[in-house]
Every structure is written in C-alpha cells, then in structure tokens.
Design a protein around this nucleic acid. Sequence first.
DNA 1: CTGTTAGCGCTTTCAA
DNA 2: TTGAAAGCGCTAACAG
Lengths: 343, 343
Amino acid sequence: MAATIKDIKAETGLGLATISKYLNGGNVRSENRQKIEEAIKKLDYHPNETARSLVTKRTRTIGFVVNNIASNFSGVLLQHASAYLHERGYGMMICDSNLDEKQEAENIRFCVEKQVDGILLVTASREPGFLAPADKAGIPAVLLDREIKSDAFDCVTIDNSNAAERATDYLIGYGHRRIAVIHSEEYTGNERYTGYLASMKKAGINVPYKYICSAHIHSAELGYNSMMKLLKLKERPTAVLTTNYEVSLGVIMALNEQGIRCPEDISLIGFDELILPMVMKPKLTLVAQPMEEIASEGARILLKRIEEGNSFPPQRVSLYAALKQGESVRDIIVNGKNNCRLL
Amino acid sequence: MAATIKDIKAETGLGLATISKYLNGGNVRSENRQKIEEAIKKLDYHPNETARSLVTKRTRTIGFVVNNIASNFSGVLLQHASAYLHERGYGMMICDSNLDEKQEAENIRFCVEKQVDGILLVTASREPGFLAPADKAGIPAVLLDREIKSDAFDCVTIDNSNAAERATDYLIGYGHRRIAVIHSEEYTGNERYTGYLASMKKAGINVPYKYICSAHIHSAELGYNSMMKLLKLKERPTAVLTTNYEVSLGVIMALNEQGIRCPEDISLIGFDELILPMVMKPKLTLVAQPMEEIASEGARILLKRIEEGNSFPPQRVSLYAALKQGESVRDIIVNGKNNCRLL
DNA sequence: CTGTTAGCGCTTTCAA
DNA sequence: TTGAAAGCGCTAACAG
C-alpha cells in the first residue's frame, strides 16, 4: 500500500493539517519541515490526487476534444498544448470525435463525467448545443482553430478569410485568372472560401461555378475527386487553391496519377505547413498557421478562465498566418507580358 | 451545485447503500428502481467519478505515454487505442515524451501521480529503469511497437526483423545486390537492421560499410543526410531500405532535391503505410504495420492485466506485417537476364 | 505556527 | 433486499 498523510503523521508526530499545509506550500517551522521531508523520502510518499480532487473540486486535468486525432494537424496541436499544460501540472484527457458530431457530443459528456477542469476543443460541429453539458457543469471550453455559431466561448483561430484572400491575391498577382477552389463546408473551409471570393471580386474576375468544388468535410478524397473533375474541364483552371492539408494531399495524388506537372501545367497553393509540403517536389506554396501559438494561447486562456471564471469577457483571438512561398506557383503570361510579381 | 447521491436519497427516501447498489448494477426492487431513475432524471444526477475513484482505487483512466505525439504514426495509434478504451468507459491521459528519455521518465511519474489504472507505452528508452515508479505503484504497462530490455512487461510489436528481411529479400529478388540501409539505433531501427543483414547474408552478398547509415534516432534529417551521402558514393546503391516513416520522407526530399528518379535511378522500400506513401508518386513499396491491431491488442491486454493482475505471464505478441507492393522498386538486369520475380 | 475536527461523494461491510 | 455507519486520503475552517 502506498503511504498516506497519516503515515507521515505517525512518523513525524505532527498534525495532519501541518503536513497538508507543508504539501501545499504553506509556512511550517523549519524544524518540522525537515521532519516531514525526511518522512516523505523514507516512506516514498506521494499525495493522492484523487482524494485531493474530491475536496478541492479540481482535477488538474484538461479535456482535449478533437475532430480527428489521426490528422497530422491535430498531432502537432496536441504536442504543443500538452507541453504547455504539463509544464503547469495539468494532465490532458484526449477524446477523438472521429469527424462525427454525435461522437463529439458524447466526448463532451465524457469530459464532464470525468470532471475535467476545462476543455480544449477542435470542433466538428458548428452548432453550440452539444456544449450544454459542460456549460451546465461550469466547465469552460476554449475553441481552437474553428469557431462555432455562438460568441459565448473563448476562441483562438487564424483569420482564415483574410489568409485565403491573400493567397488568392498572390495567384492573381502572378497573372492567374482561371483559379479554382476546393473547400469544405466546415468552418475553416467556408471562411477560406469567402476570402477567395473576396479576392476574385476585388480583381473583377468572374468565377465559373465549375471552378468551385466542395463537400461536407475536408478529406483527401475531396481533393482527389475535385482535381480529377477540374482536369476534365474544357477550360482548365491554371491554378487551384486548396483550403486544407488533407485536400492538398488528394490533389497531389490526382496530379501524380494523371501525370500533370506542377507548376508547369497547373499552379497550387494550400494551407498548413506540415511535413508533406516540406517533402514534396515542388515545395508547396502555402498559408502556414502558427500551430504552437494557437495551442499555447488557447491553453493560456483556458487556464485563466479556470482561475478567474467569468470575470472577463469571451476572448476571440485571431492570429496572423503567413504566406510561405514555395515552388508550386508559376507566372502566367498575359498579353505577351510576364505578369509576375504584381503584388 | 451538481446533485449528489444524498439528493437522490432525499428525493426517494431510500438509503444511500440502495442507491449506490442500483448505480453499480445491483439488484433493487423494481419499485425502488423506478423511484431512483425518476430522481436521477429529475435532478440530472451524474455520479462523481472522483469520489468513486477514491474508494474503489480505480480511475478508469489509462496513461498513453508516447515517444513523439507529433508523428503521424502516433496519431493513428492513438486514434485506435482511444476508440477501444472509450468504448469500455476508460479515458486516456496523453503524455508526449518528445523523443526525450528524461521527459519519458517524468511522464511515467506523472501517470503514477495521476493514479492511472494502466499505461500504454510507445517508448523512447530501451532501459527499463524508468518504469520503476509505475511498478512500485502496482500500475501495469503494455509496450506498443517497441520493446525494452526486460521481459517482465506485456508487449505488442510486429516481427520487425523478419519484416525487414522479407523486404530485403524482395529487393534481392528483383536483382538488386547493392542495397543500402538507413536505420536508427532505437529498438525498431535495430531490429529491422538485423533483418536486413540476415537477408543479405542469406543471399551471400557482402555489405560495404558505406551502405549502412545510422543515427541515434529516427528522423527525416537522418533520411535526408544519409541519402545525400549515398548519392555521392562512387558505387551508388541501386536500392535503399528505410526502416521508418520519417526516414523515408527525408530520403524522398533528398531525391527530389537532386533530381534523382525513383525507381528509374534508385529503388526504395520503406516502413509504415501512412498517408504520405499513398500520395507520393511513385507509390512507395512498404511494410505495412497493422496499426489498429497493435493498438487494440495492446489495450485489450492492458485491461485484462488490470482486471487479473499477475495471474498470467507477460504477453509478448508479435503481429505479422505485410509487404505492400508499390511502384518504387524496379528490376535489375543481371547477366543480360531480367532477374525479376525470383521470389 | 499547530492540531482537532468536520466533511468532499461515494462504496462497502454488516446487521436487520 | 435494505440501511446505518465507517471510511477512502485529503483539505480547510477554527481554535489554540
């Protein structure tokens, strides 16, 4: 059996309260402090966190509910969030929603049952209803990467619309006008699509509906199928904006399979600086999300919310995502003139 | 405040013990059962898992300690393990060791402190010492994917040596004799290296030391640097065996950068059927580890160990990993004869 | 600064 | 079957 605080009491002859106080960093006469430390070492004592939680009502555990843990994106986010939280003595309970809203609702309930102190959430759903159990239990949640239809929650994202707009501006700056977009109807997909439209409108370019490919959820299949369709068009696009990592992978699969060269035959611009865009040839030009900042800023806000409750209004942090130049976009000659670098 | 069992008592007039018994699936008169169920619904009662844990000494939480959570490999393993465990009411506490043995030891202590019921471990270290705190606390651990130097622990791996041997046999069967290997000195890297050597020996092929590239840890850098070195050799290898996912990525980077074609100029064979090998052109020929089986088999053994203690000996499960043919290996003509498909 | 005491919410004897 | 009572290991008044 593991040693308890009572064993320390028996060993030192001190009262429980004194020992507890020492354990929690209170002031204890140095003579007693020494006694306690000796006893702890001798008995190899470790506080029972469960007992502690029962009385403090704090588990020092954060739930990490994520739409799809198998994605490289989630893994990197998880890495940074867990580093931040561990450093501060918090554990992380992981719940994979597997791209399923039912599962996501179930995961929130699970976290409530497990009495986590707070939830970090990369959501699959856009409707806030599923968060009710956490709300009722007084457990705060911070949204990462994706918003929901409610401004009651803290939220850390990038400015998706603006980032996509800059990416599209970039293509237009290189002379492209036939630009297709592949997006999902999820939050990020839609936001990025909006940015694309804004850029095209600004440039006075009409967007044929055939250049707009979408599906309910981001996936490699979406990228693959969409690209295959685009390649069959009589007037092929000269450039494609993909609004997500997995979608880019699918697009590349299709190009490889069809023997289409990038950027010679078609230019590409995507999102997320994960391992693949670094490895592929040509290097993908992309919008790089600040992964570590998203994770640590989200965790920081969550801990603050846990400490300070509703004493401050919901935070909505929008981080800047830089466009990183690769080799996947080429110049288009317009009117015999190389239109390069209009930007 | 959340409702407690006492509120149910007040609502129903029954004793605490009866209610507790109902909660734990015991026999209760159907009349009382109904009363309790009504009260639970009315008060929106949820058992306090912390209080429960304090008396049962079970947290229904499993620690998942992983060498590197950012890797796609870990993400997929995590996905399957978490699905298996959640289904059975267990939560998963994630601890990233970030390829650091100190951090790994720290993670084990953290899990012990948090009183997890068991640990699923993809280890960075090979020495079993760091597991002592778990052992002392009576917390079982199951090793996934990688063994350590101790046969006291349950362990689920693939037969790494044999898989690498088959992969090398395959290359030799296609006529290759100048075959290089890139491996790490971690468990899996070494095992796979051993298999490579066995195959080469079996075929009577002498291995020049320049064809053996290694480093302490698997990484894309290892793959990249090794491949760059191999390309500079006077007698280049005609094929390369990479013993890990990240290493393969690095190799591909180097080939792309140098404009070396695969499989025309060099053949490649790797490990792990994750997203990249599916997307790249040519499709990588590889050893596919049964990810879901590794995870669920490991979790199954762990839960059994938690239930039944040391009533059965340490399990050492070695799963079969199939070689999946891609397009990254070409035939080599030997003595004017196409040596294809000797296997 | 120290110790006594009363719980936190639940399970589990044990006697009825 | 049921319920009273003891206690899991700890913290937090409170009195000394």
